[in-house]
Design a protein around this nucleic acid. Sequence first.
RNA 1: GGCCCCGUGGUGUAGCGGUCUAACAUGCCACCCUGUCACGGUGGAGAUCGGGGGUUCAAAUCCCCCCGGGGUCGCCA
Length: 598
Amino acid sequence: MYRTHTCGSLTKENVGTTVSLAGWVNRRRDHGGLIFIDLRDREGIVQAVFNPEISPAALKIAEQLRSEYVITLTGEVAKRPAGTENPRIPTGDVEVIVKEVEILNTSNTPPFYINEEIDVDENVRLKYRYLDLRRQRMKENLQLRHRVTKYMHDFLDARGFTEVETPTFIKSTPEGARDYLVPSRLHPGSFYALPQSPQQIKQLLMVGGLEKYYQLARCYRDEDLRADRQPEHTQLDVEMSFVTQEDVLQLLEELYFSLARAVKPDLKVIRPFPRLTYADVILRYASDKPDLRYGLEIADITNIAARTDFAVFKNAIASGGVVRVLAAPGCGEYSRHQLDELNQLAVSAGAKGLLTISLGSPGDKLSALSQEMIKSVAAKYLTLEQVKSIAKACGANPGDLLLIVAGEPDKIYPALDALRREIARRFNLADPSILNFAFIIDFPLIVLNRETGKWEAANNPFTHPKDEDISLLDTAPEKVHGKNYDLICNGMELGSGSIRIHRSELQKKILRILGYDDERIKLLFGHMLEAFDFGAPPHGGFGMGIDRTIMVLSGEQNIRDVVAFPKNQSAMDTMLGAPSPAAEEQLTELRLRLLEEE
RNA sequence: GGCCCCGUGGUGUAGCGGUCUAACAUGCCACCCUGUCACGGUGGAGAUCGGGGGUUCAAAUCCCCCCGGGGUCGCCA
């Protein structure tokens, strides 16, 4: 037996007892005749004392100990001598007087600090991920992750859900992301696809009468990586029969509200979660996942701009554009350089330009604004009244800076969103002690792809149209809203879901609008349509990103910090050295041959 | 593929044309030290400044190309 107790669990209660501990040498303090070791295991750290008067043999071994050596020791728990207690660690009242110690393994000098929370180059962290996982931050994130998934299992079990495992080798589908393919040895030339999500399969489970299904499902997408995107991620996948959108939203809210309370009781969560329509958030925040912890709302001033003599506005509006404004509080005295920075940000986000109007220095009321206080390249084209009404529209006051972007809606949203987030960042407006959940609802069901001129499913082709919009499918498909919803929190999309189509006629109709002919429909979706014709119940559900949920709960800005063994931005695992070339024999067996590089 | 940022001993930083034979902290090695807890003290090893080319009398420093990493757009729910 290596140990009777864990390091972090020792308290005054244990004083006088003999314990055995095992762990890593966190730090050694050698006083010559007396050596202190901070012994670390998963549960915490405790001080071990090597005293020549107790055990000269143990002291001898302690002299050889170095950072990250693995040891086991036996000794007596003692109250620390008065005045030597360490209030900074939970076990600081006691120490272990070592009688015996054994080195279970030595360690090379670690390539970075394990016992200090200093930022280390991520290359090095990922190459030695197993060492990085010993550090407090990663340990806490993984433990939080476990508590979250455990909570989800318990929550759904208590409500009658059945966990079902679905296959990871499935069929490639044309919709959505690029698939990861797995070559079939038994069927040369054919490939399985790894699931982007178990979407179709969970719907078929509903046809199968499961009624309440869930799974923590691994999902795969062969697309470029981002701070919140990995090639594989885990999703809480849920599907229910005989539910309305309201039923699903209630369940989701209950789950995430109680989850947050359970695992992060210090964070503030407001209930009920606001429900905002897609049209509303796009107008007010230029984003479908706005961070609602701060205001900085965007206002439409197309009508005001149309009456000015400013050619940029007039031209933009004439070609179907709009004009939107955002107030940057207290930025009225920004320097030329600072204004340039914001302009650059807007341009790099796709705007043609950024018009800034400085409202002078703070103090006065908006009604007291005078022409002299206004500084802008467009000042001579705008009347004082026009500037006032623009300022009023976005709630700006003297001392603020108006940020105005004009152009086609699709082109200026990214810029407005970037500006809004940048202003929030500069003034630390996003309170880290708040979890601001919200549902986004009433998405368009179908959108026109400008490049291809084709209709595309905004969510997925299985989303049920809102009942009152079904009649519009034939006349104005772009006006049809779907019964789908996103859950967002602090500027991050945690996941989405929908009520699905469960009747084959409607499903066929949607697929035809999306440009599939009957032959393709049969080929690609025949199994779904056939299943629907065997008494498919009405159903709906959601898929929530576990990784992103952990990010939001832990406050981590990068998905790699909530995953034990993530890929870097080039989708490589530098620890394992994956991906790697396949052996010639493997390729031959699969009847595969590599093309020459271009 | 485009744009932006970063690359200096193991780690984190400083240096941003000459005083760099590259500094500081920490880590590492050796010795000293019986109450420390980021122990302390003394000494020591450790970097061709990501790679290549160029400008210059002189390059870690300026320019170009490449490589690696990160962020982002495209892509992706």
